[in-house]
Design a protein around this nucleic acid. Sequence first.
DNA 1: TGGAGTTTCCTAAAGCCTATAGGCAAGTAT
DNA 2: ATACTTGCCTATAGGCTTTAGGAAACTCCA
Lengths: 189, 189
Amino acid sequence: MVRVGLTTDRLVRAGAELADEVGFDQVTVSALARRFDVKVASLYSHLKNSQDLKTRIALLALEELAARAADALAGRAGKDALVAFADVYRDYARAHPGRYAATRHPLDPEAAAASAGGRHAQMTRAILRGYDLAEPDQTHAVRLLGSVFHGYVSLETAGGFSHSAPDPQESWTRILDALDSLLRNWPTP
Amino acid sequence: MVRVGLTTDRLVRAGAELADEVGFDQVTVSALARRFDVKVASLYSHLKNSQDLKTRIALLALEELAARAADALAGRAGKDALVAFADVYRDYARAHPGRYAATRHPLDPEAAAASAGGRHAQMTRAILRGYDLAEPDQTHAVRLLGSVFHGYVSLETAGGFSHSAPDPQESWTRILDALDSLLRNWPTP
DNA sequence: TGGAGTTTCCTAAAGCCTATAGGCAAGTAT
DNA sequence: ATACTTGCCTATAGGCTTTAGGAAACTCCA
């Protein structure tokens, strides 16, 4: 009996790769076992169950994304920061569609609390420091930015904009221009 | 042997209800058979397979949503139309989370072509007639609106805004105000 | 009205996935 | 070298999908 050296960490990282290749929904304990050339039951010493695997992949993806976003934000402000931050999301989703899908995986409250989710919100708020928005408008703007980033990336990766002019990159650029303009001229009722 | 009177249509409608109750991902041929108190194999005379069921539920939801949107748009223009249209999406997603999730289900090209997807895009364009946007900015704006609506609704139903002030309804209203303002002052590079 | 034909639902079975229990061997510590 | 722990195994059970083939219920026409 050869020991392959399975660990929870290796399994989760391989699961993330698998997600990018076949889609997050298609990530199964069976497929992962196949990838390590190991029997399925062996994985259950390292993973509680299938749900646990998916949750851990989601947390990994959220961490990765937060790290890239933090990196992109360093030393930038205003529109520069806005665009860099937005690009991180879009680029990550295009390079790692399965991982990105994982970030949309519903987390139970404890997992959510332990996740990088809070950092994402904090970074969005940091971007808004470059604009002049007081509460509660700042929160409204945080929610708007989150919606646009997630919505655009989600529709684009789902193929919603494919095969139709103009180029999605062009729309993305112009939408970020528009958001910048909107944040500088946020309407008060 | 009692005949229950299964038809593709009844199955799809029941599948949509099931989706709203247990989530679109949990819709299975087995669960549907259970609901009709019928053996699983019996459904395969009416449905090609599990994928077929999900696709049909997606098409049903897209139709319903398009019908409601068309209704909301009738006799409205400008911001009035924008808000009414957006509310249709949000209200539909909150009332029918499973069906809404179904509308995000990837469709193969033929199904997509036969779907109400095109009408949704057309209606978004119709809203923009109340604003002064020439191509390609109109398309950029269509994509922005689609992203915001889908993104916000998706994050909200995923619980992203729950248990945090301010009220999501308030953010929604202010975001629509902001979009209206943005569309009236669309920046040109 | 009484088949003939069609439709609807059934049983049976195979394949894949999740999950648990219990066992043996490879590594580790004394 | 022996005892302990850990890692991966076999075996098993239950659920979902899908196909094949059969029998009962409905329909339609002579």
